[in-house]
Write a protein that binds this DNA or RNA. Structure first.
Lengths: 155, 155
DNA sequence: ATATATAAGACTAAAATTGACTTATATAAA
DNA sequence: TTTATATAAGTCAATTTTAGTCTTATATAT
């Protein structure tokens, strides 16, 4: 139901690694692969995707590598998910009406579509810096208190 | 990253179907399977799971079937997910430290664990009645406005 | 008795994810 | 200008997860 894919994990790990370098310094896919024990090809591909999305910048050739282009505070978790995995879809029929044979008898499409939107909204409130930079954990905690416990308190 | 499994879909469809019956009436797995074009075995298994969890009650034998035991307002989306799929785990290492070889070099465990908790909280604010009963869609919309748009408004 | 229903285990098929292999291109440095 | 090292990207294979099927057992109204 909700599980980080390896790609998202590697993206978070990579972004954190880049964020810990001095500005101007480059980090290669190989370095990340070695330090964190993650498969080179997959890390490399994720970084390429982040480059295409303008989140990091790649420098080719010897001594090349990647550096951050965007501020981690300005990237939402929602944006990262969409960049890596495409539009969030709780059920296939959200972006492709023909994707489900049950469509014409389905009794739950519209509430599920609304839930889909709201999960998107929720993920837009989470910044990558919340997921990566330890000193802001307290801030992250308290922000989420505000946003998600309205009903939970009744239980 | 976020996708309803077929089991969750069939659970929602079944719960909605049960909720539309007069109280006292039973609905068989076969009926749900036929009406919604869902595979009998899978629907049947999901209903068995819901029975074990005390969400529905099964009556065996000829003329048997299922009826709701709990009020849909009293079941959270979080509870349904846990009943059908077990504890929500963004990453395997949340419930099993040995599940990941990268664990000792991982630089993102603790923020991801916090996010995991907060997604749980968020899903606890969603009631199954929100996902099933159409007349309350408006209420569902406005409730979620309160809970998830605090940051989104800035964007 | 019999037909119809749930209960549950074991197995197979399909789909999605993950990772490996390969080739091409860019570029700093010897 | 050659070489080593880096990104870029396509294809394929292995693995894991999900979904669905088959089979047998048990309960019960008629």
């Amino acid at each position: 139901m909700v599980k980080l894919s390896r790609k998202i994990e590697y993206a978070l790990i990579s972004l954190k690694a880049l964020s810990q370098k001095n500005s101007g310094d480059l980090t290669s896919a190989k370095e990340i692969s070695n330090v964190y024990g993650a498969p080179f090809d997959v890390v490399s591909r994720v970084l390429q995707t982040l480059n295409q999305a303008g989140i990091v910048k790649s420098i080719q050739g010897v001594q090349g590598g990647y550096h951050l282009l965007k501020n981690l505070e300005d990237i939402t978790f929602h944006e990262l998910i969409e960049v890596i995995e495409g539009p969030l879809a709780l059920v296939k029929c959200i972006h492709d009406n023909d994707a489900c044979e049950m469509a014409k008898s389905c009794n739950i499409i519209s509430p599920v579509a609304i839930l889909n939107d709201k999960i998107n909204d929720f993920y837009q409130t989470i910044k990558i810096s919340d997921l990566i930079i330890n000193p802001s954990l307290v801030k992250f905690e308290s922000k989420l208190e505000e946003t998600s416990n309205v009903e939970a308190q009744r239980i």
